[in-house]
Design a protein around this nucleic acid. Sequence first.
DNA 1: TCCTGAAGTTCGGAAAATCGGAACTATTGA
DNA 2: TCAATAGTTCCGATTTTCCGAACTTCAGGA
Lengths: 112, 112
Amino acid sequence: MRPMFHPSIDDIRLEAILHALSDPVRVAIFANLAGTDCAQTCTAFSSVGDRTIPKSSLSQHFKVLREAGLIRSERQGVEMRNTSRCVEVQARFPGLIPAIIEAHKVEAAKAA
Amino acid sequence: MRPMFHPSIDDIRLEAILHALSDPVRVAIFANLAGTDCAQTCTAFSSVGDRTIPKSSLSQHFKVLREAGLIRSERQGVEMRNTSRCVEVQARFPGLIPAIIEAHKVEAAKAA
DNA sequence: TCCTGAAGTTCGGAAAATCGGAACTATTGA
DNA sequence: TCAATAGTTCCGATTTTCCGAACTTCAGGA
């Protein structure tokens, strides 16, 4: 298994962030991670909304979020602890993440 | 030629906006449109940065921006007048567009 | 009216990205 | 050492993107 790659702050690309969050599953995962202090495992998201996400797809989604610099994944025993990198991203692109999270809430509120 | 489709404010999706702006050419076009009051034609963007964009690709890019609700395109004689819909999007997703434009500037500044 | 040129759009095939099932790896606990 | 669990990797099928070529639309002459 390859070691996990996490870009440094300066290598984070706006393009990659927007692409990562342009998927409904990924933005849901990220919004959840950004809204909590405790790390979440991948399987915590095996279903998003009413959809069931296959393990392989989940793994890809986490990889995209990780390589965009949005989350940090650390192995802890048999599972993966995922946390958001909001604070770091905020330093590079001030206000970007809060605006997207807020927009995501606006849309989620409307759907309900 | 099919009539152009512009989504109404309430049909604008966050997902579509993020996807539209996750492309370097499109975010450059949109940042430019958002930063000026005067409408721009498509050919005004036939080159972005140092890259030359084929007409057919440009047309597709404008279509993506239009259908995401980010711009409005109106035929004026032989050409197309494109303007941003920032004010409308701001009403639906407050702060989202300014944050992305700002992030785009941060990145553009770094590249220079 | 009939050209001609300019501005975009549409078509279609090649290239790239995405999805998900099956097989694999890594780690813990019995 | 064996079994179970969490996640990754592989790979084929589907979907999306890219761009050249052909087409449409409109304005301004001759």
